[in-house]
Design a protein around this nucleic acid. Structure first.
Lengths: 145, 145
DNA sequence: CCTTGACTTGGAGTGCACTCCAGCAGGAAG
DNA sequence: CTTCCTGCTGGAGTGCACTCCAAGTCAAGG
């Protein structure tokens, strides 16, 4: 669905993007790497998807690998249709620490199952669309309306 | 008009939506059958997704099988992520008649390809999510995000 | 007759997920 | 020093796809 493709980035995990410097990244760089806009990054933080990002002496955000890892997950969850409200729930659990791991795992598993079910729905819907396409393919006879 | 909105039996699986005969249905019944609200049905007509539905002597809508078939297709297109603006384009072409059949077919094929690509993306995204789930599974010392 | 209830209209309102903006601040270059 | 650039904040605005509503109409039932 996303139509954002910029040069680099992509997929396989920001984990690979993190490696170079362990030095923290400014918001502009993270925007480049993730494809999210600086506004969106700040908004994610505001609504609690990302824990308070550390700042430099001038108050500017300094994203560390942990933040990038969280963002990677958030992006995949969004891309697979999880509503922001549920990601907030996840973030809340993550913030609460280790005892919530089972609940977080369950949340992700339920989401995965919903996505799988959604994919199945898509295939079913495509069937109908394919049939419609087939009705056009190589035939001009029609029943007048 | 063409093959599009009244192909024979096979076009769009309306069969599910057309329970019994050919008597026209009131909006309430169509809402029940489709799961769309009466408001949405009227809105679809207003924005041109559905051609003017015929009315009874009191001005009430009377949905005929042709309308239900169109609705079936529209619902599948929406369910697969086609924006309303593109469905409007389709509806406009369908209204224009037979000469636009190739363009309609192309529109549907391009949409199908986008959906297939989207499904591929979903599988890729699930990979990341599965890895995250795996990091919880049977381990309390993973990389919490 | 009146009431009920399904339906009509155009327009306003909603929820979601951003997205934009005005106004300001600190650091670097010239 | 000034200028430029990047970033900051809170709040307002946007686009999409509905969803709700007030006010009115019609047909049938009591």
């Amino acid at each position: 669905m996303g139509v954002n493709d910029e040069p680099d980035v992509e997929t396989c995990g920001i984990d690979e993007l993190v490696p170079d410097g362990d030095g923290p990244l400014p918001i502009s760089r993270v925007a480049e790497l993730t494809g999210l806009s600086p506004d969106t990054l700040r908004w994610y933080e505001r609504v609690g998807l990302l824990e308070e990002v550390t700042r430099d002496s001038a108050g500017r955000r300094q994203y560390v690998p942990r933040d990038l890892r969280r963002l990677t997950l958030l992006m995949r969850l969004r891309a697979t249709g999880m509503p922001v409200s549920e990601m907030q729930h996840y973030a809340q659990l993550a913030k609460a620490g280790d005892p919530t791991e089972p609940e977080r795992k369950q949340l992700l598993e339920e989401h995965r199952n919903r996505v799988l079910s959604h994919i199945a729905d898509l295939h079913r819907d495509l069937e109908i669309i394919n049939r419609k396409i087939a009705s056009y393919r190589g035939s001009q006879r029609s029943v007048p309306a």
